[in-house]
């Protein structure tokens, strides 16, 4: 697609196309699906952080939800305490989470495999305790109340009256486009290639001049920036608090990345669609039958678990990998 163009232009064209498609979907979807689509975009940004960290550079994190929380809390505090406007607060939250990622990256540069996974998991588990330890600032278990508000006049003048879900979607969309543009650039650039080289063979990549520790930290910083952006937008759905960023959120992101294809940007998007819409599809499929709530309540988790196992065993490259493999043959 868009062959012969520079990396930046190629990425820009793909991003614009992506934005147009989502914008169009926002016009034709009903409010419920507009809301769901905005969650897809938010998680897409979060899953991209795993695609970079794990898929691209081979570092395992089970605590991306914690980095999302850093972005969420930074955004909420900037809005509530410093009175900073929504758009700017979201952008500044990216910097806050990148700094957190830098600090985490310093530790991560010395760790790998299960040790790194364990460390990141502990950080995810620590979020509720931190929120309660610094209750006067972070509002403990209840959290900080923020939301997307109402669209400004210039937006309604441009797009007409927007429902809350549609406004939510169109607010998230530029940020998703921004994330996609940067991800495409990084993946196609020298930086992305150096990450993949590090993942595939650390010694060989060192011989080629790639400084592994520095590169690992850089990956953490970039990945955290994506996670922070995702977390800030996720918090804007109503509240920033420990129960918004539970450990299960980190695992949901990882599930999405694996199902869609952990080494692929397209896979990140498809995985996000799957984890968001799967419960709806299951509900729709089972609504014709009399299914006990004891079963239906757990069905989405069971199905996604089975899909996850099936993917890991039969098709480790996820939906995108399987699709690509089939086409090649």
């Amino acid at each position: 697609m868009f062959k012969g163009k520079s990396i930046a232009l190629n990425s820009l064209l793909k991003t614009v196309l992506f934005l147009l498609v989502i914008f169009f979907l926002g016009k034709i979807f009903d409010p419920y699906n507009q809301g769901q689509l905005s969650v897809v975009l938010i998680l897409f940004i979060g899953v991209l952080s795993i695609t970079m960290l794990t898929g691209s550079s081979g570092q395992i994190s089970l605590g991306q939800g914690a980095l999302m929380a850093v972005g969420g809390y930074a955004m909420a505090l900037l809005i509530l305490n410093a009175g900073i406007v929504l758009w700017l607060a979201v952008l500044l939250s990216i910097i806050a989470s990148a700094i957190a990622g830098f600090l985490l990256g310093i530790a991560a540069a010395r760790l790998s495999g299960p040790y790194l996974a364990g460390t990141t998991l502990v950080i995810a588990l620590a979020i509720p305790s931190l929120a309660n330890r610094y209750d006067s600032i972070l509002a403990g278990d209840v959290g900080l109340i923020v939301d997307f508000g109402t669209p400004p006049t210039w937006v309604t003048n441009l797009l007409g009256e927007l429902g809350y879900e549609q406004w939510q979607l169109y607010f998230v969309l530029p940020f998703a486009g921004l994330a996609l543009f940067f991800a495409l650039n990084i993946f196609a650039s020298r930086m992305g290639r150096s990450w993949r080289a590090l993942r595939d063979h650390e010694i060989a990549s060192s011989l080629m001049g790639i400084k592994s520790s520095r590169t690992r930290i850089l990956v953490f910083v970039v990945s955290s920036a994506f996670a922070g952006l995702s977390g800030a937008l996720y918090g804007l759905r109503g509240i920033v608090g420990p129960s918004v960023y539970p450990v299960s959120l980190s695992l949901t992101l990882l599930t999405a990345a694996i199902l869609g294809g952990i080494r692929s940007i397209a896979g990140a998007f498809i995985g996000s669609v799957l984890v968001v819409f799967l419960p709806d599809w299951i509900e729709s499929a089972t609504s014709r039958f009399e299914v006990s709530t004891q079963i239906s309540d757990y069905l989405p988790a069971v199905v996604s678990g089975v899909l996850l196992i099936a993917t890991v065993v039969a098709n480790p490259a996820g939906v995108v990998g399987g699709f690509s493999h089939k086409k090649r043959h």
Binding site: M1, K14, L17, F18, V21, L184, F187, A188, G261, R263, S264, I265, A266, F269, I270, V273, A317, V320, G321, F323, S324
Partner: peptide, 12 residues
């Protein structure tokens, strides 16, 4: 893989 398959994301 990423670059070759991204175009298909629109279809998906």
């Amino acid at each position: 893989l990423t670059r070759r398959t991204f175009g298909r994301v629109i279809t998906v």
